[in-house]
């Protein structure tokens, strides 16, 4: 098992030290590819784009996911709760390609969203909602919602219901209780959800490829393009960079998690 995991990584690592020139792979040990990657401002922008996209997606998922989790938690009737859970979960049931096509149809210039906006006079011309960062963010948020909702929901259900009564008894209205008691105690769930969304977004590839229209230059796409060009050294270096960034992200979130649990 370790062999199946480690061997490809080692090969990858090996290739990152090679060089690709004029269509040919030069299997010489060189730090050329690394230095081009690290010092080229183009790649800096790529990394920046990747992190920016992941951050926006994570924040949006949390902003939409938390209210959904709270609604799920407060709903009394099990039937409605089940339907809502299914609705939140549904994006995962569909393949990413089908989902992406669905969003293209919805968000295109002739699509229903633009039609509504034009019909109600909100806009004079159709807005460019897809084949850019906006479309990618919407689609990724859609599919990451369940990963964010369920950790938050589970940490809310673990709350002692007496705490809400205590807060109410001491004079707090709903908002104060939420702000000072419910939300801080649900933070571990929020951090867990954010960790999942962020790291998934870092590796997102099909959605930026299909919905990005060439405008969303994220690292996984660069790796894919390099691979199809058979420029394995650049692909390997890109892959290594992605791995390092992901590990740093996971570690950072872990620290954040510990901090939020200790509160």
């Amino acid at each position: 098992m370790t062999y199946a995991f480690a061997a490809p990584l080692i090969t990858f690592f090996e290739y990152s030290f090679y060089r690709f020139r004029r269509g040919r792979l030069e299997q010489v040990f060189t730090l050329d590819t690394y230095s081009r990657f690290l010092f080229d401002s183009y790649y800096h922008v790529v990394i920046y784009d990747t992190l920016r996209m992941a951050t926006i997606v994570t924040l949006l998922s949390l902003a939409i996911g938390y209210p959904l989790a709270y609604a799920l938690y407060r709903i009394n009737r099990p039937a409605i709760q089940r339907w809502l859970a299914l609705l939140i979960f549904s994006p995962i049931l569909v393949s990413v390609v089908v989902r992406s096509y669905g969003w293209i149809v919805l968000l295109s210039d002739q699509g229903p969203v633009n039609w509504l906006l034009l019909r109600f006079g909100v806009l004079a011309e159709p807005a460019t909602l897809v084949f850019n960062l906006f479309g990618v963010v919407i689609s990724l948020t859609h599919v990451f919602l369940p990963f964010v909702v369920f950790p938050i929901f589970s940490s809310l259900t673990r709350l002692d219901p007496a705490l809400k009564e205590a807060a109410e008894d001491l004079g707090a209205n709903w908002w104060t209780t939420f702000r000072r008691v419910t939300f801080p105690l649900s933070l571990p769930g929020v951090v867990a959800g954010a960790q999942i969304a962020f790291t998934l977004a870092l590796g997102a590839f099909v959605t930026p490829a299909m919905l990005g229209g060439g405008r969303v230059l994220v690292l996984p796409l660069q790796v894919y393009n390099a691979t199809t060009d058979i420029n394995w050294p650049v692909a390997a270096v890109g892959g290594m960079a992605l791995l390092v960034i992901s590990m740093v992200a996971v570690a950072a979130f872990n620290r954040l998690l510990k901090y939020s649990e200790a509160r």
Binding site: F20, R22, G23, Y42, V45, G214, R215, L217, Q222, N225, A226, D229, I230, N231
Partner: peptide, 14 residues
């Protein structure tokens, strides 16, 4: 092709 791709990414897609 590979070199051109890099230029394409930087000069056009950018």
């Amino acid at each position: 092709a590979s070199d051109w791709r890099e230029r394409w990414d930087r000069e056009v897609k950018f």
